[in-house]
Amino acid sequence: MNAKIIALTCAATLMASAVSAQTRNCGPHALVVERLASGYGESRQSIGMASDNTVVEVFASTETGTWTITVTQPGGPTCLVASGEAYQNLNEDLPNTDEGA
């Protein structure tokens, strides 16, 4: 999995509770996904679940480079956590941690 996406996902998870309580950029999951697709050409690139069963998703457009991170609380709405530009899909190897290598 892409190291940048992992870092963004971790950051999103840490902010999820505070953002969900403070943001107005929330709605039903299906509606959020449809608007990201129709408005920005973004599709889901990755998904993960935090220890509190919060679902974190990264949407992006490989054509325009826009990206959005969403968080969905169990039984709750889907909220936008972060968005930006210059998305890149990477497939990096783990760094070599052997001291003898």
Score class of each variant (00 low, 15 high):
residue 4 K to A: 14
residue 4 K to R: 15
residue 6 I to M: 03
residue 6 I to S: 05
residue 6 I to D: 07
residue 6 I to L: 08
residue 6 I to P: 00
residue 7 A to C: 00
residue 7 A to L: 15
residue 8 L to P: 00
residue 8 L to Q: 14
residue 8 L to M: 14
residue 9 T to Y: 01
residue 9 T to R: 10
residue 9 T to P: 01
residue 10 C to V: 12
residue 11 A to C: 05
residue 13 T to A: 12
residue 13 T to F: 04
residue 14 L to K: 15
residue 15 M to R: 14
residue 15 M to T: 11
residue 15 M to F: 04
residue 15 M to Q: 14
residue 16 A to M: 04
residue 16 A to C: 10
residue 17 S to E: 08
residue 18 A to N: 07
residue 19 V to S: 11
residue 19 V to M: 08
residue 19 V to K: 10
residue 20 S to E: 09
residue 20 S to A: 07
residue 20 S to H: 11
residue 22 Q to E: 12
residue 23 T to F: 02
residue 24 R to W: 11
residue 24 R to Y: 13
residue 24 R to N: 13
residue 25 N to E: 15
residue 25 N to D: 15
residue 25 N to R: 15
residue 25 N to V: 04
residue 25 N to C: 08
residue 25 N to W: 13
residue 27 G to A: 06
residue 27 G to F: 09
residue 27 G to S: 06
residue 27 G to K: 06
residue 28 P to L: 05
residue 28 P to D: 09
residue 29 H to R: 12
residue 30 A to R: 15
residue 30 A to K: 15
residue 30 A to C: 01
residue 31 L to S: 04
residue 32 V to W: 03
residue 32 V to M: 06
residue 33 V to D: 14
residue 33 V to F: 09
residue 33 V to S: 11
residue 34 E to N: 14
residue 34 E to W: 00
residue 35 R to C: 00
residue 35 R to A: 07
residue 35 R to L: 04
residue 36 L to R: 05
residue 36 L to A: 02
residue 36 L to V: 02
residue 37 A to K: 15
residue 37 A to W: 14
residue 38 S to D: 13
residue 38 S to R: 14
residue 39 G to N: 04
residue 39 G to P: 08
residue 40 Y to T: 00
residue 40 Y to E: 01
residue 40 Y to R: 06
residue 40 Y to D: 00
residue 41 G to H: 12
residue 41 G to W: 02
residue 42 E to C: 14
residue 42 E to G: 01
residue 42 E to L: 02
residue 42 E to S: 05
residue 44 R to I: 06
residue 44 R to G: 01
residue 45 Q to S: 08
residue 46 S to C: 11
residue 46 S to M: 03
residue 46 S to L: 03
residue 47 I to C: 00
residue 47 I to N: 00
residue 48 G to K: 06
residue 48 G to F: 11
residue 48 G to P: 05
residue 49 M to P: 01
residue 49 M to I: 14
residue 50 A to F: 04
residue 50 A to H: 08
residue 51 S to K: 13
residue 53 N to F: 11
residue 54 T to C: 02
residue 54 T to N: 02
residue 54 T to V: 13
residue 54 T to I: 12
residue 54 T to Y: 04
residue 54 T to G: 02
residue 55 V to C: 00
residue 55 V to L: 03
residue 56 V to Y: 05
residue 56 V to E: 00
residue 57 E to G: 01
residue 58 V to W: 10
residue 59 F to K: 11
residue 59 F to E: 12
residue 59 F to S: 14
residue 59 F to G: 12
residue 59 F to A: 10
residue 60 A to L: 05
residue 60 A to I: 08
residue 61 S to A: 12
residue 61 S to E: 12
residue 62 T to F: 00
residue 62 T to Q: 09
residue 62 T to H: 02
residue 63 E to H: 11
residue 63 E to F: 03
residue 64 T to Y: 01
residue 64 T to S: 15
residue 65 G to W: 10
residue 65 G to Q: 10
residue 66 T to W: 07
residue 67 W to H: 05
residue 68 T to W: 07
residue 69 I to C: 02
residue 69 I to Q: 01
residue 71 V to P: 00
residue 71 V to G: 06
residue 71 V to D: 05
residue 72 T to I: 02
residue 73 Q to S: 10
residue 74 P to M: 07
residue 74 P to Q: 11
residue 75 G to H: 10
residue 75 G to Y: 11
residue 76 G to L: 06
residue 76 G to M: 09
